[in-house]
């Protein structure tokens, strides 16, 4: 039996973690296991005041359990890759690990009044998006599909928390191929 692991770093609030966990389980139809992860301080870049997502992915790849189909990590830390100012998350395309950051998903980050519903919706959409990458999906041109590229929260908000029909079909095919390969 293989599991889709969803892990969280210590600072992640449990309600958001639970929401992500449940959404991933229902969307991908694979049994989910929780995993407590250590802090990602090692990835901290003093100059940028952010955390390098590549280092986080490398760490995740090292600790990914043998019975894990995939491992999705959730962190509060603001992530970046060197060439970009930030990333909402990053995945190994068709790989086993991915990470999403909750840092920029809250309304407060943009100086707005807090809104839990919007925050949780965004977290769940990003979780679907990065997990989709792990299952080999690339960005989708359909703006309402969970696999469409979002470079700001407005774009996240305008997606639906689901895959479009072609991406859903691709996902099922990729998952079937993977199962046969097990």
């Amino acid at each position: 039996m293989k599991y889709l692991y969803v892990g969280a770093t210590p600072e992640v609030e449990r309600q958001a973690y639970g929401a992500v966990r449940d959404r991933v389980e229902s969307a991908f139809g694979v049994a989910v296991r929780e995993m407590e992860l250590g802090a990602v301080d090692f990835a901290y870049d003093r100059e940028r005041g952010q955390y390098g997502s590549i280092a986080v992915l490398e760490m995740l790849a090292r600790i990914c359990p043998p019975d894990a189909v995939k491992l999705l990590a959730v962190t509060e830390r603001d992530l970046y890759i060197p060439v970009l100012t930030f990333v909402f998350g990053q995945a190994q395309l068709s790989g086993r690990v991915a990470v999403i950051s909750l840092a920029r998903l809250r309304q407060e980050f943009y100086g707005l009044a807090p809104n839990r519903e919007i925050f949780l919706e965004r977290a769940m959409k990003e979780a679907l998006h990065e997990t989709g990458h792990m299952f080999g999906l690339v960005h989708c041109g359909d703006r309402s599909c969970a696999m469409s590229l979002a470079t700001n929260v407005r774009q996240i908000d305008s997606k639906r928390g689901e895959f479009c029909v072609p991406c859903g079909a691709r996902l099922r095919r990729n998952m079937a191929v993977r199962e046969q390969g097990l």
Binding site: P82, Q92, L149
Partner: peptide, 17 residues
């Protein structure tokens, strides 16, 4: 010349297909 720069941008673009 910086591998991490090169690979991270490449990975990001690959996600775009």
């Amino acid at each position: 010349d910086e591998e991490v720069m090169c690979e991270s941008l490449a990975a990001w673009l690959r996600e775009d297909g």
